[in-house]
Simulated assay, not measured.
Amino acid sequence: MKKSLIIIALAFSIISCNNKSAEVKEIKTAYVDTSKLLQEYTEAKDIDAKYKAKSEEMGKELEGEVARFKSDAANFQKNAQANGQAWAQQNGAALQKREQQLSYAQQAMIQQLQQESGVEMDTLVKNVKKFIKGYGKEKGYAYIYGTGEAASILYAEDKYDITNEIVKLLNEKYKSAPTTDVKADTKAELEAIEKKK
């Protein structure tokens, strides 16, 4: 009797496990290669081009100052040899001060460009995340993972990669969107730089 009760209990547990596994819904997942997305997304390319152009323009202004400094430093060197160490010590402070100012100007330029581009890229990343979230809800995904340089997935089958689809949709949205400040600024600055060349 005890054996038959145990067998019946086992049979019920097996049947209930089979029913529960049949009820489990498949979870829809995908991933986006974030490095590839940022390389191929037109808005990200425009922001990158904008700050490269801005960096080159600001760098040219600084290059002129650096060239004048190098010329003055060469002249100082000749005069120091001709006029002696006392003269060099007396007049060298001004040259060192100019060298420091150039270094500070270069650091300030780099910091300004990094800060400005960082703000725009942060906004872009927030908008891309928002877009992917909406896309995931619309398409019925339970999870959309990100891969790339800061990989959160170590392996995934290629069939779950939706990067190209996301890039295509983002580029279409960016092209069709009314001209925004970033888009207008980028195009205007690129055109201005092209005219100067």
Rank of each mutant, 00 (worst) to 15 (best):
V167S: 07
S117M: 11
C17A: 15
M1C: 00
G84D: 01
K20M: 10
K25I: 08
W87G: 01
S13P: 01
K78H: 04
K130F: 12
Q106C: 01
N83I: 03
K129P: 01
S4V: 13
V167D: 07
L154C: 06
P178M: 08
A108E: 12
Y143Q: 09
F76E: 03
V167P: 05
K70S: 11
V24M: 07
Q81C: 00
K196H: 06
Q111H: 11
K3V: 05
V125N: 15
I47Y: 04
N75E: 14
E191W: 00
A156W: 07
I193W: 10
A108P: 01
Q89H: 03
V24L: 12
K126V: 10
V167G: 06
K52E: 04
K20I: 08
S176M: 06
A86F: 09
Q39V: 10
E99G: 14
L10G: 11
I47V: 13
Y31E: 02
K25G: 00
D122N: 15
L190N: 00
A49C: 01
Q100A: 13
K36Q: 14
L154Q: 13
A108W: 09
E165P: 01
Q81D: 06
K36H: 12
K130E: 12
K50C: 02
I27E: 14
S16H: 02
E23K: 09
G84K: 06
K54W: 03
V66P: 03
L38Q: 11
A156M: 12
K3C: 03
K52H: 07
L113S: 03
A73L: 11
I27M: 14
E157C: 03
S103M: 11
G146W: 09
I110V: 14
E116F: 01
Y145C: 00
S152G: 07
